[in-house]
Amino acid sequence: MSGAAGEAAAPAADGTAGGIPRPGGGGASPAPAALASRVRTLAPSMTRSMQRVAEAVAGDPAGCAALTVTGLAELTGTSEATVVRTARLLGYPGYRDLRLALAGLAAQQQSGRAPAVTADITVDDPIADVVAKLAYDEQQTLADTAAGLDTAQLGAAVTALAAARRIDVYGVGASGLVARDLAQKLLRIGLVAHAHSDPHLAVTNAVQLRSGDAAVAISHSGSTGDVVEPLRVAFDHGATTVAITGRPDGPVCRYADHVLTTSTARETDLRPAAMSSRTGQLLVVDCLFIGVMQRTYETAALALAASYEALAHRHSPRTR
């Protein structure tokens, strides 16, 4: 076997690899501007050799667009088969399609229509630079998440939540904060929703779910056992299940009827995954909430008004 381990298929003359299925059944390739987002989302599940290819094309689209498949393989110290497999995993039918996307991205960056990736935050950065870099990264995360969100899956998840007798939301750590945000929003429009960060309580509650109920698991990695397990239990008991994750191939998705994928900014020493993942998760949660409120507007508006009135009454001077 030549090239990277486990990559026996050699590229064909047109830059494709024999016997490798096209992602998405041969659907449209991602837009050039989505390339960096796909690299960030998919890189953790790639082999190290494929990561080198992905990082190269995202870091220097103009330079890589000028290279043949052989040239890029030599630049990254990989094989032609690795380059083609990376292109396929990123959503392109073959390397020629990836080169076209790279050329398009480079042109957009040159014209200013697609900003270049900013530098990482360093310990010596002035606070003004920190603000600018964080703002750029979070804007990019929101844009990438919105671009990659499957609206059919989102609509199906909204339908399930709007009709649910009861909704459980599971998340731990930073994802637990997002889980509480979703549950609180749904409660305020009259739905029965509870967030669970304690893994034992999460499973205990999941056992009580049935058909007609819904469960939402929030896990950026998609492999957090304390989130995967209660979703599995809810799934096994007939509840409609939703996963919000940055890893569509993660274990949590095995037990999800509907998967909503988030994008994240690059993880660095000064910007850990807990920070970068939260921004995309909150966007998805807000989309779910607005969608459910639209579906249940008559009752939701009344419940929200009652909530505002109760809070206003609580803070009125006459009640003190």
Rank of each mutant, 00 (worst) to 15 (best):
S37I: 04
R232L: 06
V84L: 03
L105F: 06
E55I: 04
A162Y: 11
T262W: 02
A312Q: 09
L149V: 07
T240P: 05
G18C: 02
S197E: 06
L304T: 09
G112V: 03
A256E: 11
A128M: 03
A265F: 02
L187S: 01
T122N: 00
D168G: 12
A310F: 00
R180A: 00
P44N: 14
L72P: 00
Q153C: 11
V252S: 11
F235W: 15
G3N: 05
A116I: 04
P61N: 06
A234F: 11
Y95E: 02
I218E: 04
P30Y: 12
R247I: 09
G94C: 08
Q208M: 15
D124E: 08
T78I: 00
G238T: 10
P11C: 03
D181T: 09
A160W: 12
V292P: 02
S37F: 09
A195H: 01
I20D: 11
P32W: 06
L142I: 14
Q184N: 11
M46A: 11
A107H: 13
T204S: 14
C287D: 06
A10D: 12
S2T: 12
R320E: 10
Y170R: 14
P11H: 08
H194E: 07
Y136A: 15
I244V: 06
T245N: 10
A195W: 03
A202V: 08
I20E: 13
G238R: 07
A31Q: 10
D120V: 07
Y95V: 00
I127V: 15
V192K: 10
Q153E: 14
C287E: 13
G222A: 11
G212P: 12
G291R: 03
G246T: 08
L288Y: 04
A143S: 14
D168Y: 07
P126S: 00
L42G: 08
S263P: 09
A5F: 13
G280T: 02
S197R: 04
S45M: 15
L161A: 06
